[in-house]
Structure formats: C-alpha cells, structure tokens
Simulated assay, not measured.
Amino acid sequence: MLPSLHRMFSARPAVLNGSLCRGLCTLESVFMQKRPYSPSTERKKFYESVSISQGEGGFEINLDRRKLKTPQGKIFTVPSEPLAIAVATEWDSQCDTIKFFTMHLTTLCNTALDNPTHRKKEHLISASLKFLDTDTVCYRVEEPPRLVEFQTNEWDPVLQWAENRYDVAIGSSTSIMGPVIPDQTKEVFHRHLASYNSWSLIGIEFMVTQLKSLILAMGLVDRFLTVQKAVLLSRLEEEFQIQHWGNVEWAHDYDLQELQSRTAAGTLFVHLCSSSSIIKHKLLQD
C-alpha cells in the first residue's frame, strides 16, 4: 500500500502540510490548462495495482508488473522516493479511465525525463527570469482608488519580502511598460535559480507560468506564501471584480480550483525534487 501523502508531510510547515496536500487532492477533479508534456488526454485503465521499486537510476513506478515508461519509451525513473510516492498516488487514484490531464506531477516528470524541447539548465533559468520584467505584482493601476488600495495592501508586503530576502531593488510602476528592473537584481535572481537542479527548475518555470510572477513563485518555494495566498495574489484584479460584481460559480470557481491545483502540483514537485531521496520507514512490530 502506498504511504499517505498527508502522513509524509505531517511534520512539515503548514504551507506544505495544508496548502500543498489540499491542492494535490484536487488534481483528480480539475483540468490542466497548460500541460508541460503529455502523450494524450485519456486512456482506458489497464492496471489494478501501483507500486514503487528502486532501480539503478532512482525510483520506478510499477503498474501491476509493468514498469511505467515515458512517452518516448524511457523507464520512468525519478530521483527521490517522496516524488515516486506522489506520482504513484496519481496513478493509483485513476478510475476506469486514465485522465492524463489530471496528472500534473507525472507530466512534469515526463518533461524532465524526455526533455522534448532539448532545453538545458540555462534555458530553464532564462524562461523563469524573463517573467521578472512583467511580474504580476509589479504592475499597478492608477484607478479606481479601491483597487489601488487593494493592490498596495496585498502586493506591497510580498514585494518588500522579496527585496529583503534577496537584497535587491525591484519596485513597481503604473506605466504600461512596467518598472525598470536593475541588471543587478536580475543577476541575483539568476544566481539563485542556478542553485536549483534541472528538475526543480522545470517545476519553478511551471509555477511562474501559472502565476505570471517569478516573485510569487519564489515566495512559494521559500514557504513565505501558501498556495491559496499566491493564487489569490496572482488573480487580484479578478478577485476585486468578483467582490464588486459577484461570482459566477461555473466560471470563476472552476478557474480558481484549476489554478490552485496546477500551482500546488508545481510547488510540490519543486520541494520533492529537492528533498532527500529515501524515506525512513518504521518497522512494524508484532
């Protein structure tokens, strides 16, 4: 039987124990609007049990007695046991039909293993870093006054955290061109991103793309923000409109849950790719 993800993170900070696990639980019920790499959308389920085994290159997923493979036919091998458990949970949760669009962690792993666009580490860093020039939290409006106040109250603390955390100047602007980000700030973020391995960078880029913000993504990675808070901040203007005009459940709620699911998966992926490779299992005594 697969270990419970909730038990895996029971000793972690609240952002992992609460936000990420709740977000992961929604993976089965929402669509992934922007998939990194996936072979198809659905397929009839062909297995009954899911298990994990340790191979030469890492941890493998077994569907009955078959080894899971990537779209390019490689053995699906991940670098850490916690990540293998999370991926196996996605496969174990599928019903009669395998819905690949709900399996965010699996598709992120496929992207890392097959690397279909042949990107190197520097490409991954640049892909995330380019969002700094158009970062969501840096673009401000001049009116209406209530929205200006809303942005100031919600975004300024995150911006101040980032400037203090990385000892950089970022700033904000009401200009359509956005703020002018100093080259030194970009260099600092470049060095910081370079400290992550390629797998983690794939997850970070996925998070940045969902939130349209490098600052919010790093706030999640650094556990300064919860998934729910980061998503709220990325949708601040939309949330303001909902407060003013009301919520359309079939549209707004769906979009919100979908974005939370993708963001939670990306954040979880980054943390699991950075964790120790083996979980210490307790020996059951009679």
Results as ranks from 00 to 15, higher is better:
216 L>S: 04
232 L>W: 03
258 E>F: 01
186 K>D: 05
115 N>V: 02
164 N>K: 15
133 D>L: 08
212 K>R: 12
281 H>L: 07
241 Q>I: 15
170 I>H: 01
239 E>T: 07
268 L>V: 02
232 L>V: 04
155 W>H: 10
284 L>H: 11
187 E>C: 12
138 C>R: 13
278 I>A: 11
62 N>V: 08
178 G>H: 06
228 Q>D: 12
79 P>M: 09
112 A>H: 09
237 E>R: 15
230 A>L: 02
207 M>S: 10
237 E>N: 14
127 A>E: 11
21 C>K: 00
255 D>F: 10
266 G>N: 03
142 E>D: 14
13 P>N: 06
250 W>D: 09
86 A>Y: 01
174 T>N: 06
154 E>H: 10
125 I>N: 02
61 I>H: 03
259 L>I: 14
26 T>V: 02
244 H>E: 15
170 I>Y: 05
105 L>I: 01
260 Q>M: 10
35 R>T: 11
253 D>W: 06
46 F>K: 10
172 S>G: 05
221 V>I: 13
273 C>D: 03
240 F>I: 04
74 K>Q: 14
107 T>D: 11
280 K>H: 13
2 L>A: 02
223 R>M: 15
143 E>Q: 13
118 H>G: 02
84 A>F: 03
210 Q>K: 09
105 L>V: 02
44 K>R: 14
50 V>G: 03
251 A>L: 13
282 K>G: 07
223 R>K: 15
74 K>Y: 14
208 V>E: 01
12 R>V: 04
101 F>E: 12
137 V>M: 12
83 L>W: 01
49 S>W: 07
42 E>G: 02
286 D>P: 09
253 D>C: 08
267 T>S: 13
196 Y>G: 04
154 E>I: 01
108 L>M: 10
67 K>D: 07
140 R>L: 15
260 Q>I: 05
52 I>G: 01
120 K>I: 11
113 L>M: 07
46 F>T: 13
240 F>E: 07
89 T>N: 03
33 Q>H: 09
253 D>A: 15
43 R>I: 08
202 I>D: 05
162 A>M: 11
110 N>M: 13
29 S>G: 10
239 E>I: 05
1 M>Y: 06
257 Q>C: 13
162 A>K: 03
226 T>P: 00
29 S>A: 09
227 V>R: 00
109 C>V: 05
164 N>G: 09
94 Q>D: 06
169 A>Y: 06
272 L>N: 01
174 T>M: 08
12 R>A: 15
85 I>K: 00
40 S>Q: 14
179 P>S: 06
120 K>P: 00
269 F>I: 03
171 G>M: 08
31 F>N: 08
208 V>Y: 05
109 C>D: 00
177 M>Y: 15
25 C>L: 13
235 R>D: 14
31 F>G: 08
114 D>V: 07
